[in-house]
């Protein structure tokens, strides 16, 4: 067991190393920092960023925006999803609305949001709007997949509505919502950064991405990208651990 875990870990490290080598080779072939900076210069840019206090403030603000959008979409997605899953009228009412949000280009939403909100709230709103349909759809599927035989059993035994929700629907929906939350969180990070690039709040990863484009600091662009990936991965792991610690796998 121990041996296989070690083996697994070292294997992962080799795989990562392999792709870094591929990256290095590609950047050597291209030999133009502006198109593809080498892993080394990206690393240097990253170290420079990590020495700067503003970087941490920026990370904090962008994290706040991503998580706010994510939590709000979870809240609305689950509550409205429950209502639509149990009530055909509301399901029919919401279906076209969700369908539209799903297909509208992110950029259109970002631009319209810039007209409506303060710069810092634009990414929150956009992240919410992008994550909400995912949570909603999965909640509805979870509710609809709840075994009607169990619900009939609850009816026979006169179980209170609240307890049917907490003890039957909750567990039936859980695997669906869990998967949705994990993918929504990842999308949340991407969309928040995109919205920040256009709305340019004072402290935001997006603003730095934008600046690195303007000043052609491509290694910095890569370094910020590495930061976003790391944050996204970190929060995904935390979320999974959270589910696990509550025995919700």
């Amino acid at each position: 067991m121990m041996h296989s875990i070690l083996h697994n870990k070292s294997r992962k490290i080799y795989i990562i190393l392999f792709w870094i080598v591929v990256w290095e080779v590609l950047s050597l072939v291209i030999n133009q920092e502006i198109y593809l900076p080498s892993p080394f210069s990206t690393f240097n840019a990253l170290v420079d960023l990590l020495k700067n206090k503003d970087t941490y403030i920026t990370i904090l603000f962008s994290t706040y925006r991503t998580l706010s959008g994510f939590f709000v979409s979870c809240l609305f997605g689950i509550v409205i999803g429950y209502i639509c899953g149990t009530n055909q009228f509301f399901y029919d009412l919401f279906t076209p609305f969700i369908g539209i949000i799903r297909t509208v280009p992110v950029m259109s939403i970002i631009i319209i949001a810039i007209m409506w909100f303060k710069d810092t709230n634009v990414p929150i709103f956009v992240a919410f709007l992008m994550c909400f349909p995912i949570i909603w759809t999965n909640t509805v599927s979870g509710i609809k997949s709840t075994d009607p035989k169990l619900l009939q059993m609850c009816q026979i035994y006169n179980i209170k509505k609240v307890r049917v929700i907490t003890s039957v629907y909750f567990y039936s929906v859980l695997p669906y919502v869990k998967a949705a939350m994990i993918s929504a969180l990842g999308i949340g990070w991407k969309v928040t950064s995109a919205a920040e690039v256009l709305s340019l709040p004072k402290y935001s990863i997006g603003r730095y991405l934008y600046d690195s484009k303007v000043y052609l600091e491509i290694p910095a662009l890569f370094a910020w990208t590495v930061i976003i990936i790391t944050l996204s991965y970190f929060f995904e792991t935390v979320l999974k651990k959270l589910f696990k610690s509550r025995n919700y796998d």
Partner: peptide, 13 residues
Amino acid sequence: AVYSYVFQEPRLL
């Protein structure tokens, strides 16, 4: 009447 029911399947959570 207060009902209880043993179904064809156990119908346990």
